[in-house]
Each structure stands twice: as structure tokens, then as C-alpha cells.
Design a binder for these strands. Sequence first.
DNA 1: ATTTCCTTCATTCTTTAGTACCAATCACCC
DNA 2: GGGTGATTGGTACTAAAGAATGAAGGAAAT
Lengths: 161, 161
Amino acid sequence: MVDSRKLKVDNGIKHILLYALAIATFIFILKWIQWKFLIVENAIHIYVGLIAILFTILGMWFTTQLLKPKTQTVFVEKHIIIQEPENFCLNQTALKKLNLTNREYQVLTLIVKGLSNAEVANELFLSLSTIKSHASSLYVKMNVKNRYQAMIKAKKMNIVK
Amino acid sequence: MVDSRKLKVDNGIKHILLYALAIATFIFILKWIQWKFLIVENAIHIYVGLIAILFTILGMWFTTQLLKPKTQTVFVEKHIIIQEPENFCLNQTALKKLNLTNREYQVLTLIVKGLSNAEVANELFLSLSTIKSHASSLYVKMNVKNRYQAMIKAKKMNIVK
DNA sequence: ATTTCCTTCATTCTTTAGTACCAATCACCC
DNA sequence: GGGTGATTGGTACTAAAGAATGAAGGAAAT
């Protein structure tokens, strides 16, 4: 029952569609003929128009080939951050006042680097005893109790890097 | 004598020039007439040609307007010198990476000041053993051998004043 | 409830730092 | 020639630092 009714409806729609298609085709043909006459009548204008379009494109293409691209220079600041550029300035006056001998100062610089007495001895090709001697005497001259305080004082006085 | 002979020559040249001019004018007129007929006969071609030229130029002009300029980026180095006179800025990131406990960091700050373990113990009201424990574990975490190196590393890493 | 981590403290032992005192060598100056 | 100071080195001793291990209490997470 449902199927037969559906079939009826389908047939109706089919006829309507066919009719519409016929009309559409007819209109299309008419329009086409109209266009054909238009083209025939305005052949010269269309020709000129096509030429214009063609040569416009040609001119554009030609230009892209010939024209050197204009360069626009953009300046961009590149920030380079420099951490204290070796601006260590040895405090000669303070160093002289301490009255350290050359060896003592040499030992001090290595102590400040964090080396142990044994390592300093190795570095300078000297015995541990010698380093201890120099270290002790430089502590007295710097008026400090041990290597840590010597380190801090030396850095504060700007007598070592 | 010299003058009269020169005059004769001048007269001869004048005639020749006039004659040449007449012929040239005649030829020019003829050519012009010929061109005129050519133009009339080929009016449509000339028209199309002019259109072509015009639109070629138009296309070229259009392209010059459309074409984006090629940007050239120039980096200008601007050096920014950062000095650290008093503006100590704690390096939180580095400090976190070390994974020190609160007490360990506290002990470190006092070690950096140059205090001995006994002094640190006094300062924090703790036993010497406790300070030694914290110190040892922070040396391991900082990957240093002793308090001097911890001092140097801590200052270099900007994790202490 | 158990585990994990932080904190605290202790003990033992080794290494390093520092003091004190001494001595040999060398260069320089009076 | 003798005095002075820098350099090098030694011994003996004390103090401090550091490693290794253990343990107990507490807070926080699972």
C-alpha cells in the first residue's frame, strides 16, 4: 500500500521535472542564439577586447620579467647582551699596601680559584710545605684567619680576578 | 681675387641645396599621401595595434603598482652592556635545578660568607654534626668537592649574594 | 597506614688547613 | 764579608673539614 502510493507521487514528480527540463533547454537555446547574434554583431568589439586583455597580460608578464624587484631595507636591532666585558681593573694601590711577595701573590690567586694546597703545590711544582709557608704568611699580611676569608677579601679589594 | 672666387662657389652650392630641398619635399608629400592611403586602408589594424600598445603599457604600469617590493632585512647589532654593581638578581631557575633543601641553602649562604662550620652552627643554633651533614649533602648536590668550590660556583651561578 | 623526604644529631675516621719553628740556598746591598 | 729578605723545604702538632654510616622525629603525600 505504501509502495503504490509512493510510486504515484514519484511519477508526478518525474513529469514535472521533465517539463521543467524542456523549458530550461528551450530558454537556453534561445539565449544561446541571442548571444550568437550578439557576438556576430559585436565581433570587432570582442576582438578588440580580447586583444586588450591579451596585451594587458603580456605587458604584466613582460614587466615581471624585466623589472628588477625593488628592495626595501628593513633594519632590525639585534640585541646582544654582554655580561661584564672583562672590565676587571686591578687595584694596584691596595695590592702594594699588602706588601705580598711575588710567590705569595701567585699562591693567593690559585687559592682564590678554589684549589687546595696540594693542588697549588702541583700547579707550581713545589712541595706542600712551601705552599703552606706562603699561605700562612699571606694570611698574616692580609689579616685574615683562613683561605676563605682571604678569598673574600681579595675579591672585595679587587686584587684578583 | 680670393673673395670673388669664393662667392662663385657659394652660389653653386646654394642652387644645389635648393634643388635637393625641392626633391625632398616632393618625395615627402608622395610618401605622406601613400601613408595616408595606408592608414585609411588599414584603419582597423592600426586601431587594434594602438589598443594592443595601450593595454600593454597599462598592464606594465599595473604590474609595477602591484608588485610588492622585495624586503631586505638588515640586522643592526646593538650591544647592551649589563653591569652588576648592586643589582643582584637571584637565578631562581638554577637554584631550583640544584634541588637544595631550605636548610642546605641556608647553610650555603653562611658558608659563602666565609663562616666556619662551627660558626654556622652557632648562627643557626644547631650542632656541628648537623651543619656537617647539610654541608656534605649540598656539596654532592652542587657537584663540588669542598666549601671553597661551593662558594665559587654559588657566586658564578648567581644563587647567593 | 605506609612511604618518602626533611631535619636533626651522633660517631668514627681520613684528609686538609693552618701554626710554629727551623734551616738551606740565593740574590742584593752596604 | 755580613746583613736582609725572598724562596724553598722540613717536622710536629692542632683544628677544621669532610666522608660514611646510622638513627630518630615530624610533615606530607599516596
